[in-house]
Each structure stands twice: as structure tokens, then as C-alpha cells.
């Protein structure tokens, strides 16, 4: 049991930090940026993606001996698309407002390279339990970047934290203004660029390749 736990911990650490899918493998940033104007949408997106990643790993890995290798991509996409449809229906049923704000980006989880990438690279070669943990780990690694970007964009762009104003009124009276650029597209690019710089500069985070 001890061995098992440390084995899962190893997979988790790898997915969340050492080989973080967004910062290190440059996967899945398409949707990572568009939903980060507010932390609430980013959080829902993170949860949705993490669960889809985990369960797609579990299902694809369980089927790995049955899928003929020449049609595996289509089978993987079908599994992922079905999971995304379920997620989308649940969101529309219970979190209608947020699902409207996320608009097409829930559907784009299908083409998120993290999920297909982990299915190809990990789930096809490992047992279902490991693949589930790996999917969750990569989902959490992605969520971490997503929440960090959303934190800065919401704080600097509208002075809020999960929709609650956190910058006191007297700061505005002294002439402080919200940075409009953070709410717009360029803000997301700048923040993620700077975050990756920060991550690469931290000890143990230097694993980037020369261009």
C-alpha cells in the first residue's frame, strides 16, 4: 500500500508541477486563456476539464486492449466527446449562467490537447487506475495555471476576487484605476508569459528547452 501511494504521488507531482501540461508541455492553452477573465468561470472550467481528463484516462485505458491501433484516435475522440457532452448538459442544468459565459469553450475541451495527449501518451500504455490519477494530475496542473491567470486578470482588471471587490475605495480615491487591458485578450497573453517566466526561474522549474 505504501508503495502504491508513493507511486500515485509520483504521478501527481509530475502532472501538476514537474511536467506541467501548460507551462512545460505547451498543451491546452487554447481554452486556458479565454475563460480567465473571472475566477468563477475559470474554476468551473478547471473542474470540468480535470474530471473529463481523469475519466477519459480511465475509460480509454480500460479499453486499451480492445481498440485497434489504426482507429484509436477516432475512438479516443468519441470517448472524450461523449464525456464533454455529459459535462455540458450538467453545467446547463445546474450552472446555467456560468455555462452561458463559458459559451463554446466547454465544447472545446474536446480538442484540448492535454486530454488527447495524455490519452495517447499515458492511458494507452498504463493500467486504468494509474491513467485516472494521471488525468486528474494533468487536469490539476492545468487548473493551477488557469486559476493563477484568472487571479491576476480579475484582480488587476476589475479589482475583484471571485466577484467580491477587494481593492478598498480609498485606493481608487487616490487615483488608482483598474487596468482595462487585463480584461481584454492581450492581458491573458502577458500574464501567462510572465507566469511561465516565473515558473522557469524558480528552483526545479528550469526544464524548458532551447528554441
Amino acid at each position: 500500500m505504501q508503495n502504491n501511494l508513493s507511486h500515485y504521488k509520483e504521478i501527481l507531482v509530475k502532472g501538476i508541477w514537474r511536467e506541467n501540461p501548460v507551462a512545460y508541455q505547451v498543451l491546452g492553452i487554447c481554452s486556458a486563456l479565454a475563460v480567465t477573465v473571472k475566477m468563477s468561470t475559470a474554476l468551473v472550467m478547471s473542474i470540468a476539464l480535470t474530471l473529463v481528463a481523469g475519466f477519459s484516462g480511465l475509460i480509454i485505458s480500460s479499453l486499451r486492449h480492445l481498440i485497434p491501433s489504426n482507429i484509436r484516435i477516432i475512438v479516443e475522440l468519441t470517448v472524450i466527446a461523449s464525456l464533454v457532452i455529459v459535462t455540458d448538459q450538467i453545467l446547463q442544468a445546474y450552472l446555467y449562467d456560468i455555462s452561458k459565459q463559458l459559451s463554446i469553450f466547454v465544447g472545446l475541451i474536446i480538442t484540448n490537447c492535454i486530454i488527447l495527449g495524455r490519452a495517447e501518451a499515458f492511458a494507452l500504455a498504463n493500467n486504468p487506475a494509474d491513467s485516472f490519477v494521471d488525468g486528474i494530475a494533468n487536469g490539476l496542473g492545468y487548473s493551477m495555471i488557469l486559476m493563477a491567470v484568472a487571479f491576476f486578470r480579475e484582480l488587476l482588471g476589475s479589482g475583484q476576487f471571485f466577484g467580491i471587490s477587494v481593492i478598498p475605495g480609498f485606493v481608487y480615491d487616490m487615483g488608482f484605476q483598474d487596468m482595462g487591458i487585463m480584461v481584454l485578450a492581450p492581458g491573458a497573453f502577458f500574464i501567462i508569459g510572465l507566469l511561465v517566466w516565473l515558473k522557469n526561474s524558480l528552483p526545479g522549474g528550469i526544464s524548458h528547452e532551447k528554441k
Binding site: A23, G193, N200, I206, H208, K210, K211
Partner: peptide, 10 residues
């Protein structure tokens, strides 16, 4: 640290 991905994003 900025070289590569971070730089392209900026």
C-alpha cells in the same frame, strides 16, 4: 527563463 514559450506569449 523567458526564452521560448513565455516570450512567444508576450
Amino acid at each position: 527563463g523567458l526564452d521560448g514559450f513565455g516570450f512567444i506569449m508576450i
